[in-house]
Structure formats: structure tokens, C-alpha cells
Amino acid sequence: MSARVESGGRLHFGFLNLSLSHDRLYGSLGVALDDPRVVVEAEPAERVRCDHERARDHAARACEVLDVAGAAVTVREELPPHVGLGSGTQLALAVLEAVARTHGRDAAVRDLAPELGRGGRSGVGVAAFESGGFVLDAGHPTGLFTTAAPPRGAWTVPPVAARHEVPDDWRFLLVVPDAEPGKAGGEEDASMRSAVEAADPGLADRISGVVTRRVLPALASGDVAAFGAAVAEVGRLNGAWYADEQGGVYRPPVGCIVDALDGSPAVSGAGQSSWGPAVYGVTDEGRAEDALAAGREALDAAGVGGDVRVVAPRNEGARVSETGQGKA
């Protein structure tokens, strides 16, 4: 049979803790988006066939861990890579799910994500693929941290500590400036380890307070203004950990864009998603057009071009459809 898998991007607001002084390390929070999306199709084959380089690598690994002969994999839509929207994890898991389904297998994405090199520090991307919504993961025991990166597959995805539906009328402004890609792969790993080894433990206490006393209550009560302000504060405090690694609390030119959005009544809070350069702004359906205009003005203020859109949250996981018998 053939299989089609569709999933959206995600925002990554930051981590609860990067200090080795606390019992648990990392612990991330973020939200699943309905757009932009990745769409992958697969059908059985005697070997791996795929014209998309990154997807081909994922397909080969998926066939290996699933113990199947091969698959013909096509990427119909993809997330912009290395801008902070979770393209790597969503593509890898979409390929894994599609290959598994076309062979009648259970993908077991949470168990197999580490085999594809995903879900090591943050569990937001895996949880977003599974069930969407707002996600807070539990991180890892700090005692497991090593100065050298662990081999692929030698970790488990952090468990979900809290998940909430995001109100249907909330929206997220996405501003992706024309800038150098965010950190990924070995560069990202080295920067994260450097940040962890130098992290101020006091910031973790402040961030935990913001999450428990502001982010989660605002989400539970549907207060978009309070939620936006709270996640923006989480991002700003996280930026203090990364300042040496990214050239400031926000990486250039994100700081200028965030500053411009902070002055707009159409946006309730703005920040950098993951390593950027994607910038998010929290808004709602009634302010969407004004938020779009604010995003374009923010790019102008920063003196750069880029893509601006307003997207809905996604309160469900990846959509999977199966048809026919496929081809040999």
C-alpha cells in the first residue's frame, strides 16, 4: 500500500534548565503549528528510492531499523530547513511513519526517533508529531550528561510532563528573515554543550517560576496576552544562556525584529524560536491582519527581507492516510 504523512512545524520557546547544578537538564516547551507543513509519501520498493537528499538518508535508516527491504519516498512539501521551526525532526519522523505504514508496520516514533538522531535534548518535536498542542517535556536526569556527544540511538526521548490544547482562536505570527541558517548538527551540539557547561543555575529558577506561575495558568485559562508575555520572557531568559554562542540574547537580526514587534498592539509577546532566525509573535484571530502588517514593518525596521505569515496552532498529531496496494 502507499502512505501519505503530513505534519506541521513547531515553535520552540526554550528550556527550563541548562545548568548542571539542578537534578534535571533541559526540559523544553513549545507549540505545534498547522503551517508550514511537511508532506511525505511512500510506497514499497525493493530498495530505497528518493530524490530528496535528507529524506533519502532518513528513509535508508528507517528501512534498516524497521527491517524492510526498501521504499520509494517522495517529499511533496517541506518545512524551511534550519530556521527554528523543527524541520529536521518533522521530516525524519514523517519519513519513518510513511515507510512503516507502507509496509504495514507500527512506526513507534517515540521509540525509534533516537535511531534517526532525533529527540535527544528536546522532546517538543516528537510530542508535536504525536499529538500536537502545547508541550512541556521533562528533560533528562542531569547525571546522564556527558561532555562528548552520545552515539545515535543511545538516548530516549524526554517524556511529556504537560500537554494542553491551544485555544482555536489563537494565532502565531511567523517572521523568517533572510538571514544565515540557525545552528544544526555538530555545530548545534557543540554550542549547546558549551552553553550547558557555563550555564547560570539562577536563570533556571527564574524560568521555572515563569513557566509554572505564568505560562501554564495563562494557557489553561485561555489568556492569550498573558501567555504571549510569559513565553517571550522564557525566551529572553534562555537567550542569556546562549549570548556567547549566538552573538546576543537573540541572534542578529532577530533582536531588531523582536524589538519592533514588542511595540505593536497586535502582538502579545515575541521571541526567537530555537536557534532562529525565525521570530514568533503571539496574537489571535481578531488581530491577525494587523499582526501581518506588524511583521512586515519589523522586517523593514531591521533592514532585511523575509517571509511573514500568521498560522494557527495544531492540536492534533501527524495525519496519516493509506491507499491501495502500492508498487513492487
Rank of each mutant, 00 (worst) to 15 (best):
V5N: 11
L25H: 04
G269M: 01
S122P: 02
T156V: 10
F15H: 14
G30A: 04
Q90H: 06
G119N: 05
A270E: 05
E78T: 11
E78Q: 14
A59I: 04
A72M: 07
A113D: 03
A293H: 09
S194E: 15
G235L: 06
L16K: 13
G306W: 02
G88M: 05
L16T: 14
D284M: 01
G281Y: 00
A195R: 10
L136S: 08
A32I: 00
V304N: 06
G70E: 08
E77N: 10
E187A: 15
E297C: 10
D34P: 01
G228R: 01
S7V: 15
L96R: 03
A204F: 02
V282M: 02
V282L: 06
G281Q: 03
A270L: 05
H12V: 14
S122E: 02
Q90R: 05
L112A: 01
G202H: 11
R110H: 03
D262Y: 06
D57I: 08
A225H: 10
E115V: 11
E64F: 05
D23C: 08
E180R: 15
A291S: 07
E64A: 13
V73F: 04
V279F: 00
V95I: 03
P313T: 09
V176S: 09
E115D: 14
V175L: 13
R206N: 03
D169K: 13
E197S: 15
L136N: 05
F15N: 11
P252W: 06
K327S: 15
V258L: 04
P44T: 06
L66Q: 08
V210H: 00
V267Y: 01
W170V: 09
A291H: 00
S273Y: 04
G133W: 05
S208R: 12
M192L: 15
P313K: 06
S191V: 14
L20V: 13
R47P: 03
P217W: 13
R118P: 04
D200K: 09
A127K: 00
E316T: 12
L219K: 07
G303E: 10
